[in-house]
Computed example of a mutant assay.
Amino acid sequence: MTPCATSSSPPVDHGPALARWPLPEPALTYFPNARYAISDRDLPARAATRAPISKDPATPCKGAAVMPEHPHDPVLLDRCVELLLPALTRRSADGTGAVLVDATLGAGGHAERFLRQLPGLRLVGLDRDRTALAIAAERLAPFADRVDYVQTRYDGFWAQDTAVDGVLFDLGVSSMQLDRAERGFSYSHDAPLDMRMDQDAPLTAAEILNTYDKSAITRILQEFGEERFASRIAGEIVRRRARKPFETTAELVELLYDVIPIPARRTGGHPGKRTFQALRTAVNGELDSLRSAIPSALSALRLGGRIVVMAYQSLEDRIVKGEFAAATASRTPAGLPMELPGHEPYFVSLTRGAEKAGDDEIARNPRSASVRLRALEKQTSDKFVGREGS
């Protein structure tokens, strides 16, 4: 395998892990249960972020924090292992010679299970979030000689000669990012309007709200959040920012409660859900990245290799479904009575449509309630180039 990005130990974020300020009024109306101080759930992640991390994750610096065994429950972990294991153990039962790309490494929950179960496996962990890479390095320190970390979007890794045996995508914002109030991903905490997965990226949610015109904001809310009150929300954003620029998530949530009609707020969850999703997607270019990453990952798989993708919103799942449909379609010209040799589909599906989490999983891990899992296996040595190139 020849990665197209430099593999290295993850950079360290020494910034504070939680903003610590009281919520302004009238924000308390919308955040009655918000945490002003750090909860027990946040302590491990905060400690791991602020503790020193050596350049060699296998030998942590003195005083470096150790992540708890399970800081967050990985979604559909057993099912991911079941689907990917046959591709990773084709050469050896312990995974020797196999390469797995965890394209959304996060806190390393899925990666840890694979590395622990397969002592010969090599894993490449991708994440644009340097804090996530630092935390994952602490968690995966016992396996450091078998892990490469790459800080990149998941469409920034693949090269023409990249060849791997398995790929895992766990899309969307991670639980770790939602729990970090200062990152601005959550409508449940007052924080700066940031929403960047890569803290070095230039665009923030505040810049979109304060500088984009009404039509651009409306388009973002409609396209990325499927928000039916997009035009009304965008108009009010433009009016309010003329008096005072938006700075915090509480200000945006207050606006949404004022603008969205009361009957509409009674169904469909928190009224900020769609707007926050839309802004986060726009800030991070998530859909464009996914459109590029899926065909690249499919092309990088060796014969018999497998890919698993977990999506949590309809826009993401629609992209995955389209690429997977193209990958599993016959290449025999329409109208012929039989499959032509060499024209069989590139991939075969391992799931019947999209799989959902069961009741037990959802009860244990509420984040899994919206997951849609799809998986494929490569059955030809030909290179798949995606829908546009097919």
Rank of each mutant, 00 (worst) to 15 (best):
D145G: 10
S349Y: 09
P295I: 10
L133Y: 14
G305L: 03
G225S: 12
G235S: 15
I38T: 13
V66D: 11
V385D: 11
D382A: 15
E254K: 00
V124Q: 02
P71L: 14
P345T: 13
V238G: 08
R232L: 07
T248I: 01
D179E: 12
I260N: 00
P60I: 03
P345I: 12
C4M: 11
A159S: 15
G304Q: 10
V66H: 11
F185K: 01
M338Y: 11
L303D: 12
N33V: 02
L279G: 06
A300S: 15
I294G: 01
L115Y: 01
D258H: 09
T152A: 14
T332I: 09
R79F: 06
G172I: 06
I237L: 14
T2W: 05
I262T: 14
M1L: 12
G353M: 09
F169T: 02
L115S: 05
P261I: 06
P341W: 04
Q222C: 04
T218K: 12
E25I: 00
R130E: 08
D148P: 04
I260D: 02
R239V: 10
T131P: 05
V99R: 04
D13P: 02
R387F: 08
V308T: 13
P245I: 05
L88F: 03
A137L: 12
R35V: 03
E227K: 07
L287M: 15
V75C: 05
L84W: 01
E286A: 00
G156Y: 08
C61I: 03
P11V: 08
A300W: 02
M176Q: 15
A216Y: 00
H270C: 07
V99C: 14
A311L: 09
A264D: 07
E377N: 01
A191T: 11
S330H: 06
F246I: 13
R372G: 09
F384G: 02
L209I: 14
T59E: 15
E286T: 00
S92Q: 10
A47S: 15
Y154G: 02
I260L: 09
L376E: 01
E286D: 09
